[in-house]
Amino acid sequence: MTPDLILIAVTAAKIAIVLFAILTLAAYLVFAERRVLGWIQDRKGPNRVGPFGLLQPLADLIKLLTKEDFRPPAGDKWLFYLAPAMAAIPAIMTFAIIPFGAPVTLFGTEIAMQVIDLNVGLLLFMALSSIAVYGVALGGWASNSKYALLGSIRGLAQLISYELSMGLSLVPIIMLARSLKLSEIVNAQSGCWFIVYQPLAFLIFLISILAECKRIPFDLPEAEGELVAGFHTEYSGMRFGLFFVGEYINIIVLGGLATTFFLGGWHGPVLPPVVWFTMKTLSFAFFFIWLRGTAPRLRYDQLMQLGWKVLTPLALVNILVTAWWLVLKG
């Protein structure tokens, strides 16, 4: 076999593993969310399907697949069909650049535990997260419904605003790691996690990714109390399911990125690196769920105020301080 073929085979295998892992994780994250929310509300949560309700995601899947696939007759047919994919695919693609373990040597070849180690990885992440906006925008537009449109307009404004603070909060990381390559960012934290150097950036990034994946307290695009279900009001069946899955994949991906950027990626003692990475990522997911059970939704003006008047200036200041500190340090 030529090295090229081996590379293709290995990459294909990695893609398969990653796809399987994150899809399964996303499905069980839905289940975990319902259970945890149940506990927070002194309930038990779903516990009927299978032992401890573990087959609940499968039941949900069957339900979603067998539901009527309805399309608003006056909506834009092709955009309507395209939008759920536009929401889910960029999220999945982002995972290609995340290193989820230390490189291993197999049959004499070093294999990176990462689908692809781009030298502009961080930029690709920024780009893909911008594309994710289209899912929301097109879904709301193509539905031809006032609730959906209002939800998608809110979503657009929110995602664009928080992308800015998210990007700015990552600049100090690039400055510290001196690379856009995610594997090198991880390696730069082998001694000390960046959260120690950059607690402010971490906080801004955390808040921004909360807003990016449209989770409570930033779920204004969906806002059940006001907009029925926001941008996916008109969706049913598996198309709705795709939006739903996209949201949970997003949680995992953004959790993984936060791990990569601030919590030292797969670095950690004793346990294997993959386990460390998974634990750190899932702890973010748990935090998201926990916060959902706790915080109320922000008002739209509060959301904009927080994004533009607090997070963005803070991130800028943080960049300046970091730069000043780096210069001082030499």
Binding site: G38, W39, I40, Q41, D42, R43, K44, W290, G293
Partner: peptide
């Protein structure tokens, strides 16, 4: 508060 409730016995 929510953390405390998470550890409580469900009333279901």
């Amino acid at each position: 508060t929510t953390w405390k409730h998470m550890l409580r016995r469900p009333v279901t």
